[in-house]
Computed example of a mutant assay.
Amino acid sequence: MPVSLTVVKRLFAKSGNQCAIPWCHAPLVVEDHSIAEICHIRARRKGGPRYDPALTSDEKDDFKNLILLCPTHHTEVDKSPAKYSVDILSEIKEMHERESQNEVTPRMAEQAALIHAKQLKKNSKSIKSSPVHGNADARASSGGVAVAIGGHNQGKINIHVGGKPKKEAGKYPANSIGADANLAGYIDYLCEMYVKFMSPIERDEDALWARIGKHIKTKFRLVKRSRGHIPAEKFTKLVEFIIDEKLTNTPVGQKHIRNGTRLCSTFQEWREGK
């Protein structure tokens, strides 16, 4: 599976729009052009640099296993796995992202989308064709089917489609927070702020993301559902919960309160990129 847009947004937000190699100052996005390349610390495929068979497919494309580099250093890193080991790249990633911001502004989201689109295009080009001999037969019990055969096909291809096409359901129900990009984006921003505010006492960001997610699920009794399933009418309550009960009780949040400064941007300010 390709790296998700959410992960790319998080990577870009923490990159400072700069290649992660300490001595490189190359930007990752210039105006509306993506230069960035997504480097896997542990390769996705067997035989790749620093491949680890113990990693699952999801772990290979997870935030912890990815780092944004310029094309030059991506090539150097992957051609020199002995020099750029897993430990070295992990340390470079940690150092590069340590002082970065967690907020994803609308402009940063647009730039991250450019990187994501470039990666998808790259992945589609990397699929190699191979010759097909004999007959190929594809069937579907319901819905449609699309088949692409690369190489030189020397056999007959039969495609059988059965049943009525099923209407594809959205990931989130209508009128839910997840169905509205602005509502979902602001909640992601607040969760990012929670992770950032907790960083002085907890450096495991994945654990912090899991923690805030669990708090939200418990508060809104989601059971097996995610925060995106919360009805849009409860958006204000969710915002108040994260700010008043979570951000204010973090070390950084307490410091903001003592100094009389605001904890975060309002929804409107966030939408305007302030």
Rank of each mutant, 00 (worst) to 15 (best):
Y186E: 08
I149E: 01
I92R: 08
L66P: 01
V77P: 02
D137R: 10
I38V: 06
M198G: 03
I177A: 07
G260S: 07
R107W: 15
S4E: 01
V3C: 06
R271M: 14
V3S: 08
R42K: 01
S142L: 14
R10D: 04
E272Q: 14
H73C: 10
H215N: 14
G150F: 11
F12V: 02
W23K: 03
G163S: 09
A36R: 05
L11N: 01
E94G: 15
P71T: 08
K167I: 13
T6M: 07
C19G: 12
E245H: 02
V145K: 04
S4T: 10
W23R: 02
D52V: 02
G47W: 00
I159M: 05
P49F: 06
N249R: 07
A112Q: 05
H33D: 14
A109P: 07
G253A: 11
R107H: 15
A26P: 02
S57Q: 09
E91H: 10
P173K: 07
W23S: 10
S265Y: 14
R258D: 11
I201T: 03
R211M: 13
A184Y: 15
K93M: 02
G213P: 10
M193Q: 05
A181Y: 15
I67T: 08
M108P: 10
K237L: 08
V147R: 00
L208T: 06
P131D: 07
S141Y: 14
K196D: 09
P2N: 04
Q268C: 15
K9S: 02
A136Y: 10
M198T: 06
L183G: 12
F220T: 01
Y172T: 04
N17K: 05
S100P: 00
R50H: 12
E91Q: 09
G228R: 09
I216E: 02
K167E: 01
R139C: 00
Q254I: 04
K214L: 06
A181T: 15
H25G: 13
N249D: 06
A181S: 14
T218S: 15
C19D: 03
A148S: 15
M193Y: 09
K167C: 12
G178D: 04
E192D: 01
G228V: 03
R258P: 04
P22L: 02
I21F: 11
K274R: 13
G185R: 05
S199K: 03
K64T: 13
G162S: 14
I243E: 07
C19Q: 04
E76N: 13
E245I: 03
E245P: 06
T250L: 07
N259I: 03
A13H: 00
G143P: 00
G151R: 06
V239C: 07
T248W: 01
Q268F: 15
D62T: 04
K164I: 09
S142V: 15
E192H: 09
I230E: 00
